[in-house]
Lab assay of single mutants.
Amino acid sequence: MDVFMKGLSKAKEGVVAAAEKTKQGVAEAAGKTKEGVLYVGSKTKEGVVHGVATVAEKTKEQVTNVGGAVVTGVTAVAQKTVEGAGSIAAATGFVKKDQLGKNEEGAPQEGILEDMPVDPDNEAYEMPSEEGYQDYEPEA
């Protein structure tokens, strides 16, 4: 019985440690998101679009440190934060509304985080759909 109880105690310690790591990862992701939003706020009209992409990228980098179902929630929060940063930029006159959601080359930025393969159960990952990809044929 002692062996059984000791095993359960060790398992509990492992769960607590994993929860603490997840909590730490979420806190880091939130900190990076805040950094990115402050970065966007300090940019001029020309830099705002690039700044919004930076927020998304920093958040995406930190999301990889967070495991399990938390990833889905962090990704949703990050996307809403990026959308909010863009709205703030438009409201303050840093950028025109028609410039939001495009990178410096004018290509749409939507789907940055949505296409990231995420499995809350950590069982399997699927690649994003290939609808947006084109076949590449090298020139002879």
Rank of each mutant, 00 (worst) to 15 (best):
Q109W: 14
E130H: 10
T54C: 14
T64F: 03
P138V: 11
I88F: 09
A30E: 00
E13S: 07
A76N: 01
E126F: 07
V66I: 12
A90I: 04
Q99R: 00
I112D: 08
V52Y: 14
A56M: 06
P117A: 07
A56H: 07
E20N: 10
P117R: 05
E57F: 10
P138A: 08
A78E: 02
Y133V: 11
I88T: 05
T64R: 13
T64M: 12
G68Y: 10
E123M: 08
K34I: 06
T44A: 15
A56C: 15
E110W: 15
K21H: 10
E105Y: 11
E131D: 07
A85Q: 05
K60I: 10
V71L: 14
G86S: 13
K60H: 09
G84N: 15
M127K: 11
D135E: 06
L113G: 12
Y133D: 11
S9V: 02
G84S: 10
E104A: 12
D98Q: 13
V3T: 01
E13V: 05
F4H: 00
Q62K: 08
T54F: 15
V16A: 09
M1N: 00
E105V: 15
V40P: 00
Y125V: 13
L8T: 00
G51M: 03
A124M: 04
M127C: 03
G47F: 10
M116T: 06
E61F: 07
A27M: 09
E131I: 14
V49C: 07
A56G: 02
Y39L: 03
V16F: 13
K6P: 00
D121R: 08
P117F: 07
L8V: 03
T22L: 07
E57K: 09
G14R: 13
P138D: 09
Y39Q: 06
A30G: 02
G31P: 01
V55C: 07
V82R: 10
G31Q: 04
K34A: 09
A85N: 04
A17K: 13
V16N: 10
K80C: 05
E61I: 09
K60A: 10
K58R: 01
V3L: 10
E105N: 11
A91G: 13
N103Y: 06
Q109V: 15
G14D: 14
A85H: 01
L113D: 10
S87N: 01
G84M: 14
P120S: 09
G68D: 00
V52N: 01
S129N: 12
G106M: 10
V40E: 00
G31D: 00
A140P: 10
K23V: 08
T81F: 01
V3C: 09
G25L: 14
M5I: 00
G67V: 12
A11I: 14
G41T: 08
A29M: 04
K32Q: 08
E57W: 07
K10F: 00
V37K: 01
T64P: 05
T64A: 10
S129V: 00
E130I: 10
G36I: 14
L38Q: 03
V40L: 14
K58Y: 13
E46K: 13
K34Y: 10
N122W: 03
Y133W: 12
G36R: 12
T64G: 06
G41S: 10
K6N: 07
V48R: 02
E35V: 05
A76Y: 11
A29E: 00
A124H: 13
A19R: 03
T54H: 06
A107L: 13
D121T: 06
V82Y: 04
D115Q: 12
Q62Y: 02
G51N: 12
N65S: 01
A76P: 03
E28H: 00
P120E: 09
G86Y: 05
F94D: 06
E104V: 03
V49I: 13
E114R: 11
Q99L: 03
G132D: 14
E28N: 08
V15M: 11
S9D: 08
K32H: 05
D121M: 07
F94A: 04
A11E: 01
A69P: 04
G7Y: 13
F4K: 00
G86M: 02
L38R: 12
E130N: 09
E35R: 07
T72W: 05
V74N: 01
F94I: 07
Q24E: 05
N65R: 15
V77F: 08
V55W: 14
Y39H: 06
V74Q: 02
L8M: 02
N122M: 05
Y136F: 11
T81G: 07
V40N: 02
A89Q: 03
T75D: 04
A89R: 11
G132Y: 14
D98E: 06
K32R: 08
E130R: 02
K21G: 00
T33E: 00
E20M: 08
